[in-house]
């Protein structure tokens, strides 16, 4: 009955640390977060780990399990080979605070820079489900920041000063495609948000626990909107002869 699973959990802080081994008693249907809680209860009361809902709805328990960015509450032990050791590390892209807890405050700073929903003057708030469907996919985001963690622009190239990261591309897409929003954020996207740094290698989409098609439905459409404004030679020519500079996000495409 009492099957035992070997866990290795990163213990340490910004000054360094190591993987520590623990044995965990396995229960049916157990997830990695259950294992961490058991370790806290019985072996290491001070093991630091964020969690809240335990139902993949709040996005607190992000970490890396056997090298893959995952939510601990959604990662089941029986997904692994019975002999496999479960290695849990903090997310790599953000500065470590302690054990499995990292300082993700940068993300909250980025969010502040994005102009919020700014209703059009003509907004009548009659909105149809067809329009909601597209935006609601983005609203599913639980801000676990796994996409930010896995994005190589942030993770390997450390360009946090030049690129907002996939989470905030989703956020901007959500605003840009809101039928009542009147603001055009393409310039922000091109310059400060650093959309061009994304080379659409799709790791963000692969790790998203909410299965948001981050790359195809948010980032690429935004790249195309920026292309409309800044990189389309036919449009540039058209604008020149028409002498008008239509913003690309006005009601009928401009």
């Amino acid at each position: 009955m009492a099957e035992v699973r070997k866990f290795k959990v990163y213990r340490g802080d910004k000054n360094g640390g190591q993987l520590t081994e623990y044995n965990v008693q396995v229960e049916p249907g157990m997830v990695v977060l259950d294992g961490i809680h058991q370790i806290q209860r019985t072996q290491a009361a001070d093991l630091a780990c964020r969690w809240n809902c335990k139902a993949a709805k709040c996005g607190s328990c992000s970490a890396e399990v056997n090298g893959k960015p995952r939510l601990l509450c959604k990662t089941r032990l029986d997904d692994f080979d019975p002999a496999e050791i479960i290695t849990v590390r903090p997310v790599k892209t953000f500065p470590l605070i302690r054990d499995l807890v990292c300082d993700v405050s940068w993300n909250f700073e980025v969010n502040k820079k994005i102009p919020p929903l700014t209703p059009k003057k003509t907004a009548d708030w009659v909105m149809h489900q067809e329009d909601m469907d597209r935006v609601q996919e983005f609203r599913k985001c639980i801000e676990c920041f796994l996409c930010q963690n896995v994005c190589h622009v942030l993770r390997n190239h450390d360009l946090k000063d030049r690129f907002y990261g996939p989470r905030f591309m989703v956020r901007i897409a959500c605003l840009e495609m809101h039928p009542m929003d009147g603001l055009d954020r393409t310039k922000l996207l091109k310059d400060e948000a650093g959309l061009g740094f994304c080379n659409i290698t799709k790791c963000c989409t692969e790790v998203c626990p909410e299965e948001i098609h981050i790359t195809d439905n948010a980032i690429i459409p935004l790249k195309e909107r920026v292309a409309d404004r800044h990189y389309d030679p036919l449009r540039a020519f058209w604008r020149k002869i028409m002498g008008a500079d239509h913003p690309c996000t006005c009601a009928d495409g401009g």
């Binding site: 840009e176 929003d181 195309e224 996000t249 009601a251 009928d252």
Partner: peptide
């Protein structure tokens, strides 16, 4: 996908 409709902010306006 963008040009044919994705660029619209409102799919139901007209």
């Amino acid at each position: 996908r963008h040009l044919i409709g994705g660029k619209l902010d409102c799919f139901t306006c007209g």
